[in-house]
């Protein structure tokens, strides 16, 4: 029975960690849907955002103020990316845009380190990485408070974004642009504003993910690689599917933890880093369009 409880613990911890992958993958999906571009800079955005946040805190700004100033900064990054990089390239091929986002990633990483230095920062959110007593008392499960908070925050953001896209005018505009940018522009939907919305949303997602991860392992360059785990998530979930990003994140989170705990020892541990990529490759062979790869609706 304790064996089984332990398994549940591992799965729950994996699912909670997975919500973070879902969230970061959602940032990719948004930009992919709006501009058909895989935003390679998303990992760098996570690092840049949380480093900026810590930097503002060090300047003495209160938590909430630093949070919103960072969001504004990410909006500005989005604005500059849209106006200076994407807009001039809009008539170019998707490959060119992909290259541009890779370049943007390097610029952000460099800028962040030049401004705030290279050493690992501590980020204290006031939430400990230790089990919650009442959960132990009622279920016998050891669940970390930090995992639980991260899970709830990610779930909250995902739901908020989903509602925004389903029920607001901007959201309708985004979905229209995602389906057919030319047609959207022909009826007066300003592509630039929609792109700005998408990049700001991706910036917020990046900041929150960076804060949650940074609180556990420190704010450091390794966050870029962590964020790139959204790639296997997207291969499993499908690049243009929001539900796919969510489910894909949960699958990766849960299986990588289970593999780490039960299979890892045979490989000398630390397989979390590469196991998701192996899963993604196996998945590609089985279902190249991804679990939720959207059916492409043919225009009649």
């Amino acid at each position: 029975m304790t064996e089984f409880l332990f398994f549940i613990e591992v799965v729950v911890a994996g699912l909670l960690a997975g919500t973070m992958y879902s969230l970061v993958a959602l940032g990719f999906v948004l930009i992919y849907k709006a501009s058909s571009t895989f935003n390679f800079a998303q990992g760098a955005m996570v690092f840049f955002a949380v480093l900026a946040f810590v930097g503002f805190m060090e300047l003495g700004l209160p938590f909430v103020v630093a949070f919103f100033v960072t969001i504004l900064l990410m909006g500005l990054v989005g604005f500059c990316t849209e106006r200076l990089v994407l807009k001039p390239l809009r008539t170019q091929s998707e490959d060119t845009l992909l290259m541009a986002t890779i370049g943007l990633g390097f610029v952000l990483e460099g800028l962040a380190q030049a401004t705030w230095g290279v050493e690992v920062r501590r980020l204290d959110l006031g939430i400990g990485d230790f089990p919650i007593q009442w959960i132990i008392d009622s279920t016998g499960l050891f669940i970390s408070a930090l995992d639980l908070t991260a899970g709830f925050v990610a779930a909250f953001l995902i739901i908020a974004l989903a509602l925004l896209f389903k029920y607001t005018k901007m959201g309708l505009g985004l979905r229209a642009v995602a389906d057919d940018p030319g047609a959207a522009s022909s009826i007066g939907i300003p592509l630039g504003n929609i792109m700005l919305l998408v990049w700001t949303a991706a910036g917020i997602v990046a900041l929150v993910a960076g804060m949650m991860w940074g609180a556990r392992a420190g704010v450091q360059f390794a966050l870029v690689d962590l964020a790139l785990k959204a790639l296997p998530v997207l291969i499993i979930g499908g690049f243009s599917s929001i539900p796919g990003a969510i489910i894909g994140g949960l699958i990766i989170g849960a299986t990588e933890k289970v593999l780490e705990v039960y299979v890892g020892p045979y490989f000398g541990g630390a397989i979390e880093g590469w196991a998701p990529y192996v899963m993604a490759i196996l998945f590609l062979l089985w279902r190249p369009e991804g679990l939720f790869g959207e059916k492409i609706i043919r225009r009649v």
């Binding site: 309708l172 229209a176 389906d179 047609a183 022909s186 007066g188 609706i297 225009r299 009649v300």
Partner: peptide, 24 residues
């Protein structure tokens, strides 16, 4: 306003969402 060749509806949106998008 131009109606482009080949209709170009927003395929994943409902008919009414398409029409509402026209009032953007």
């Amino acid at each position: 306003v131009q109606v482009l060749e080949g209709r170009r509806c927003f395929g994943h949106l409902t008919v009414e969402e398409n029409i509402i998008a026209g009032a953007y």
